[in-house]
Design a protein around this nucleic acid. Sequence first.
DNA 1: CCAGGTCAGGTGTAT
DNA 2: ACACCTGACCTGGGA
Length: 724
Amino acid sequence: MVAQSLDLVHQHSMVSTRSAEKNLESKVAVANGGDRAAAGRKSGELKGSPMPRRSSARIRALQKAEEEELLARKKAEEVEEKKKCQDEVTVVKGKKRRRKSGGEESVVAEEEAVTSPKKKPAACRKENGNEEPENGVSLAACSNGKVEENGKEESGNVGGGLGEKSDVLKVKETIRLFNKHYLQLVQEEEKRCGKAEAERKAAKNGSKKASKSKKGVLPEDSKNTAKRPDLKAISKMMQNNEILYPVKRIGDIPGIEVGYQFYSRAEMVAVGFHSHWLNGIDFMGQSYAKEYDYELPIAVAIVLSGMYEDDLDNAEEVVYTGQGGHNLTGDKRQIRDQKLERGNLALKNCSDQGLPVRVVRGHESSSSYTGKVYTYDGLYKVVHHWAEKGLSGFTVYKFRLKRLEGQPILTTNQVYFTNGRVPQSLTEIRGLVCEDITGGEEDIPIPVTNLVDDPPIPPTGFKYCKSNKVAKNVKLPLTVTGCKCKGICNDPTTCACALRNGSDFPYVSRDGGRLVEAKDIVFECGPECGCGPGCVNRTSQKGLRYRLEVFKTAKKGWAVRSWDFIPSGAPVCEYTGILGRTEDMDSVLENNYIFEIDCLQTIKGLGGRERRSQDGEVPANLLDKYDQSSESMPEFCIDAGSTGNIARFINHCCEPNLFVQCVLSTHHDLRLARVMLFAADNIPPLQELTYDYGYALDSVLDSNGKIKQMPCYCGASDCRKRLF
DNA sequence: CCAGGTCAGGTGTAT
DNA sequence: ACACCTGACCTGGGA
């Protein structure tokens, strides 16, 4: 019990004394108990205190984050929102809330119409947060986190005032939007290619085996390969007016701090940081003559990617080769003289007029889905320029750039981006206290490190279990019949499982399966399906894919990070434990590892989460079989207190990089859906993995009906300061 | 198997 | 009309 309560502490990111926390916890548990008693009496009518438990409220917070984002986007005046906070609190307590997805949802106009009456939480959060005193703390925590020991939070959000936070969030949202378009376009391409394949098969009628090898069919269809979904995604964003900063700017871009890492050139375009996905030099042409008095063109941003043979990079000082005369192929050769025009002229003008240029460095890196990372290294000034004969004997223009002073220090890490300090073997791991906490259950071992405690101790008091254990009084529904596909499912028009998902597979095959966007519910193929284990529609069933590590933090107890890059939409892990009845769980005081399966409530719009997909996505007959009582609150939950997997170590964060997704595969009972955690963003190695526990502020009441509060120390730049 | 080669791809800018 | 050079696939040489 003692060990367990120690474990508990980390889960809620608490910093104060343990005994205090423990007290708090028990009170909360009591509140839960009271609530449950009410429900147990014969629920349906939802009396007693409103639902304090974790999962039911989980995504509310995300919703708030998104709404805040929306708000910030539409209006700058957040301050006046404060007053409305009270109303929101009432709304929350009245338990009728809408949820926003784990971040995959776009911030589109129509969304606003739906949620606009409830845009207050943004301000609500601020007010409740009591910024002044706590902000300092969180900043400190934040920079601590940035020192990589705790896994860094987000390269771009180091310190900063209020306005800056929302800028960081804007950037984050824009990148998420980009990723969403990207995955949707990947899906389109995969579909198209699959169709082309099928047609070719049909054309060849009998000879199936021939079509299996790509070579045999290539000459016919050049469209066999996917076409730059990244470029398509930014085109789409331009059409939709979703580029964050569509007008070029001189100097820093709000929300992009020095050290910020882009994972592709297209991401820079999406943000408006660099408006070409191809050009090295982004400059303002004559069209900017009305706004600026400078001699145009002027350069605003350049990308150093080692493409030019004559480049020289000494970190603080760079010699950049102008554009032109390049043979445009992979061998990086100059084949012509460069001229003082376009980008070259723009850099010269910057030099003459003393204007700063944003510098981005491209690096080879395994920590990116493209194998490349682009780091913003700050503002530089062009101190000198000249023309000379380059290595290949042609005239090249050279620009000596010097980094402006007063900017964050360039670390070697940023200049020569490597995998951080990811250990290559067990012997390299510092503070190792357990080689594999899974005890061999998972395909990939999960080491545990502890550089905080003295002596270092591993986590105790639980048993690792990679899949759910079903409590005695819970009966899993019968296995449903599956699809008739053979081998792998690839035709969404015939695969029964795809049809349940709204006539599409929820996943793309790329990178071993990525969820295109957060959905109310994902139907995967199951044991009765005709397809094999390699089917993309079994993405969440394939076990761990990334090398995870449990590590001890100074303030938040245990935490989890990955040594590998995790692309957005990739499955990270399931949340497992004992699958039991919510009412039984509540009798276990102080158990803080309970995850309610609130999928049904979400879909019905009754719980804390907001709908993710459009109406009609979930087959109506699926919802019919549940009676009123099961709607009012989650009937089942997962208790990872004594038995669980890696997910039980993942901390809460108000600005998380994972989101929760319910998945059905063997049966179709929403109340017993599996709970999966997916990457909401592209996650670089060693960044702590977090998801939003989703308590709504002021939704937790103690036994006297008074609002309970618990501080949050996640350290995110827009932390709500309270877990509930 | 990996390194190097190949080529399509979309926008801004100048002609 | 064209420069811009990335990203992902393809190919061929080495292990």
